[in-house]
């Protein structure tokens, strides 16, 4: 055993070297946040200060971006899961196997076709004269085109679309692990399919739903390209603020403080969600 662990050190050292490089990068960037901005070409100067943090936390508009990022990500994650559950159910339980395979194929192709492709496509689809608005106005559902672009609706739709494959992949495992005989028992005791779904299937699925929620929430928080393209500067999430502070204001310490606040609030909110999820799971079971 001692011999194996000696060898494993050599095996893992290249990966560890790469990983320590990124840890140094994270650490250095976090350190930057405690200094005043330097003249052009330098990262920071002077003596340590907390000024950048006051700027991030003290301004109302910064707080608004922080809370709308957290809130919108949470809401988008819930919507994504609601869309993903029927898909996962059909993939696992459809009588005809080709139905499940077809949905899986759609997910795989979408997943691998990439973020930029999908962001661009939504940009054209959701425009005032895009396919969606054309369909809605021509069929008489609405009189005037709905504005999807440059507000949260378009950004939300595109992020939901981006998250959907992740959610379905994770939920498939959870649905597959359900023990159908419990549902059968409920049915044979006279419960309707709908009642069985809400009273038996969903509670059994809860741990899987919570894992999925945490996963898609953490991906949603990191959204950058979708608000950048479909938000057109009107909808900003924290990632976009970090980018602007880096490349528009050239204020690296301010960008660094924003990133630190972002990470801390992201981890805190993920922890809170997992904590509440455990409580709910306990209460249900």
């Amino acid at each position: 055993m001692a011999k194996t662990s000696d060898r494993s050190k050599y095996l893992i050292s290249p990966a560890l070297l790469i990983a320590s490089f990124i840890v140094v990068a994270y650490g250095y960037f976090a350190l930057t946040s405690f200094f005043p901005k330097g003249p052009p070409g330098t990262q920071f100067v002077g003596t340590p200060t907390l000024d950048n943090y006051w700027r991030v936390l003290g301004s109302g508009s910064n707080q608004a971006v922080l809370f709308s990022t957290l809130g919108a990500s949470f809401l988008i994650s819930l919507i994504t899961i609601a869309v993903a559950v029927p898909m996962a159910m059909v993939i696992v339980r459809a009588k005809r196997e080709w139905v499940g395979n077809l949905i899986m194929l759609a997910i795989a192709v979408t997943f691998l076709s990439g973020g930029v492709t999908r962001a661009y496509s939504w940009l054209i689809l959701l425009g005032n004269r895009g396919l969606i608005n054309l369909g809605l106005t021509n069929s008489g559902i609405v009189d005037a085109p709905i504005r999807f672009l440059y507000n949260w609706s378009g950004v939300g739709i595109s992020i939901t679309h981006y998250l959907l494959p992740f959610a379905v992949f994770t939920l498939i495992g959870a649905v597959r692990n359900l023990n159908p005989s419990v549902e059968e028992a409920a049915r044979s005791l006279g419960a309707s399919r709908t009642t069985t779904f809400w009273r038996i299937t969903m509670p059994m699925l809860l741990p899987g739903l919570m894992v999925t929620l945490v996963l898609v929430y953490s991906i949603a928080l990191a959204s950058f390209l979708f608000p950048m393209l479909l938000g057109g500067g009107k909808v900003r999430m924290i990632a976009n603020q970090i980018y602007d502070r880096m490349f528009v204001e050239y204020d690296i310490p301010y960008a660094a403080a924003t990133a630190v606040v972002f990470l801390v609030s992201a981890f805190a909110s993920i922890w809170l969600i997992s904590f509440v999820a455990k409580k709910i799971e306990k209460a249900v079971s």
């Binding site: 990983a19 990124i22 990068a25 994270y26 960037f29 928080l221 950058f224 880096m246 990133a259 990470l263």
Partner: peptide, 18 residues
């Protein structure tokens, strides 16, 4: 080793650039 999976890409990118 797995940390870049949970840390947003923008933070990883900006840290490496810095």
């Amino acid at each position: 080793i797995l940390s870049p999976l949970i840390i947003p890409g923008v933070v990883t990118g900006v840290s490496l650039l810095s």
